[in-house]
Nucleic acid binder design. Structure first.
Lengths: 225, 225
DNA sequence: TCAAAAGTGTTAGATTTACACCCATGA
DNA sequence: TCATGGGTGTAAATCTAACACTTTTGA
């Protein structure tokens, strides 16, 4: 089978992060302009190289932390991107990850320092190298995932209204859903709990705030958003 | 964002192949015993290193070709496996791929030369490093995929009976399905065509042979096995 | 003649979809 | 007072799941 190491070539290994946020009823990604060549000035995902003393997952966590100062963020691997010339400078294979963050937990000063911006996923600009492909694949995976895992709550504040949840669901899926049918389904999920609190920000009447109860949810095999 | 190359470390990059086959009504994988250290003698997937002048996908294709002599095989990426010490010898990050092959197209002499064996996925032995995880993830992905893409036909002979197709479906999903309901669904798929031919191998009465018509199938968004 | 696999429809139940109006409130 | 978003139920249509007997033929 595999013959031994020294005959083989080592390769630069990077990670790139597709950082999803939900704001203004839109699904957004956090991207900036490249500050080095090749590709200076082009839109780009935030990334970094994998070090020898850390796992690839750890490299992704570290990279996200550098940018956002956030730890224990929901992250999942998108896959390896390995064309020979995907980086015009050197042979670099990159492992893409998507992260879900709650925009309001993210210090906007830090965002400005790094000169990155929230961009509506529907208006994603042409980016450096294969970064657009990474985003498309990440989005496809996330869309799949949201159907069977309660990941919406990673993108929302702790307390949220059903309309917010619905708008998020619609933004991820790219299509509108019926309000009554949506709420019917939510009502069947015991782990989405209504609180006594009312949000007056989005309407005059006010909307009930809900909360995700992680303990009540335990890998429900019948979960379906 | 990413600072520049030379400050960073290169890493060995490998590919590992989960080769699925369907035989004797069972879903099987092709594995062998490691012929080198570390892990000499342990069960292992077939793998190889990624070269500088080939994409990761190409490395996977090449590796599969070395083992099976087959080209243009259906292969999909499973993901990157990147723990620091997943290979006790050196830091090696591996990209896993699964391949679907038609067992009867595979020259058994070649199989014997490489000393690899078809092992029932339900009886998978403990393998080297994280190879068991790779197989589990590959299987999960494949199971997902088979629901929305006509990939069964990669594992079956060109002509197959509905019972064969059903057994494959059952083996992949790990549960039995109702014969009449299954056939009802198949009948609605115009791209699965009945031929005039009869297979007498598996029954006295004989069963009609079917064929997958790739042209009739064109990314049917309503496809559902 | 009988064992073994092929082939074939119907019905009840569950799920999904479509759809419209009243409510509470701040401006 | 009215514009805005919040909140609620029912019925038709579709999909899914359960279920049993006849056919053919080689041994």
């Amino acid at each position: 089978m595999t013959s031994y190491y020294f005959e083989h070539q080592k390769i630069f290994l990077a990670v790139d992060c597709i950082i999803f946020g939900f704001d203004d009823n839109k699904l957004k990604i956090l991207i900036g302009r490249r500050k080095m060549n090749p590709g200076y000035g082009e839109w780009s995902l935030y990334g970094g190289f994998v070090r020898n003393n850390e796992s690839v997952d750890e490299a992704a966590d570290r990279t996200l932390f550098e940018l956002t100062g956030m730890r224990n963020v929901y992250m999942r691997q998108v896959g390896a991107f390995g064309s020979v010339d995907r980086d015009p400078g050197e042979r670099v294979v990159s492992i893409a990850y998507y992260a879900l963050i709650n925009v309001s937990n993210y210090d906007d000063k830090l965002r400005q320092e790094h000169e990155v911006e929230w961009v509506d996923i529907e208006q994603m600009p042409k980016m450096f190298s294969d970064h657009n492909d990474m985003v498309l694949k990440a989005r496809r995976l996330m869309k799949q995932k949201i159907k069977t895992q309660p990941i919406s709550f990673q993108l929302l504040p702790q307390l949220f209204t059903l309309t917010q949840l619905q708008r998020l669901y619609e933004a991820v899926n790219g299509e509108e859903v019926d309000k009554r049918n949506f709420r019917k389904r939510i009502k069947e999920m015991d782990f989405i709990e209504k609180t006594e609190l009312i949000d007056k920000a989005s309407s005059k009447r006010g909307a009930a705030l809900y909360r995700f109860n992680k303990n009540a949810y335990k890998e429900d095999p019948n979960f379906k958003l």
